[in-house]
């Protein structure tokens, strides 16, 4: 099953490019996995052995445990719930067929997610919707975290002319209102794909940077660039909601 990743980070994201890189060829030859992140839990190799031996209970347990996060991730990248479910289902089929080749250099969750990423990317490209606002958040036009017109002084070395507002004084019910959360969800959906994966895994799923690099095939540096752009776009959008001028 060619969609199953062989375990080398694939430095496919040029840090300063905005356009979507094509998904890696599924049968791309890759080398050994680096930086698996946290050590897999001690019982995991036993779990993997059980999966390899065809233990249905172990398989059901893993599906039950991972399904919500996988669906959530897939749902962010493909146009409909139906397609998201399809992506997750194909992921499990690939896991079934590929578990013998899983070398346990990363956690099982990282490996399964990496398969999902590959499948979702392929589907996402096939079924991509036109997102009118997407261009607003594309990093093609302007890579600045904050619009340069908010600063005075030499280009790139300005001081605040329109400083950030004090969100700390806002009540929690405003900060975490459903309007705020919806805005964040909408903004995450509109991020360029690579940024979206990194933000979803780091800040929503709470993965370590090492795990994210392993799952997405990114270098640490590229991962940070994508995280920076994604978080900066989210902060800028939130500024519209929570207040800009102090």
């Amino acid at each position: 099953m060619s969609i199953v990743p062989t375990p080398e980070p694939n430095p496919m994201v040029p840090p300063m490019r905005s356009s979507l890189p094509p998904p890696p060829p599924p049968d791309e030859a890759l080398g050994p996995l680096r930086l698996p992140g946290p050590t897999p839990p001690p019982d995991e190799s036993e779990l993997v052995d059980r999966l390899r031996r065809g233990d249905s209970t172990a398989f059901r347990d893993v599906v039950t445990a991972y399904q919500p996060a996988l669906l959530r991730l897939a749902g962010t990248f493909v146009p409909s719930n139906a397609v998201a479910e399809e992506v997750v289902q194909e992921t499990w089929i690939a896991v079934i067929r590929g578990i013998d080749r899983f070398e346990q250099r990363s956690s099982l969750k990282t490996w399964v997610t990496r398969i999902l990423v590959n499948i979702a990317r392929t589907k996402g490209v096939k079924e991509r919707r036109t997102v009118p606002m997407g261009s607003l958040l594309s990093d093609a036009a302007d890579n600045a975290a904050v619009s340069p017109d908010r600063f005075v002084g030499p280009p790139g070395k300005g001081a605040w002319a329109q400083p950030p507002a004090r969100w700390s004084e806002l009540p929690e019910e405003v900060v975490l209102s459903s309007a705020t959360i919806s805005l964040v969800i909408d903004t995450v959906r509109l991020l360029p794909e690579q940024q979206k994966w990194v933000v979803m895994l780091r800040d929503v799923e709470d993965w370590s940077s090492g795990d994210v690099c392993a799952a997405l095939g990114l270098t640490e540096g590229n991962q940070r660039v994508l995280l920076h752009r994604g978080r900066s776009a989210l902060r800028a959008m939130l500024e519209g909601q929570l207040g800009r001028a102090s």
Binding site: V63, T64, Q67, P68, L71, R72, G75, T76, N81, A84, V146, P163, P164, A165, R166, W167, S168, V175, L176, T180, I181, V184, I185, V188, V199, D203, V204, E205, D206, R231, L234, R235, L238, E239, S246
Partner: peptide, 29 residues
Amino acid sequence: EYLAQMRRTIAITGHIDGQIKGEPPPAPV
């Protein structure tokens, strides 16, 4: 304040967990 805003942004993003597919959070398989 910018640092505080960025930390807040990260924290708020963490709260979309479970809501991104709509309410309620994903049902059992």
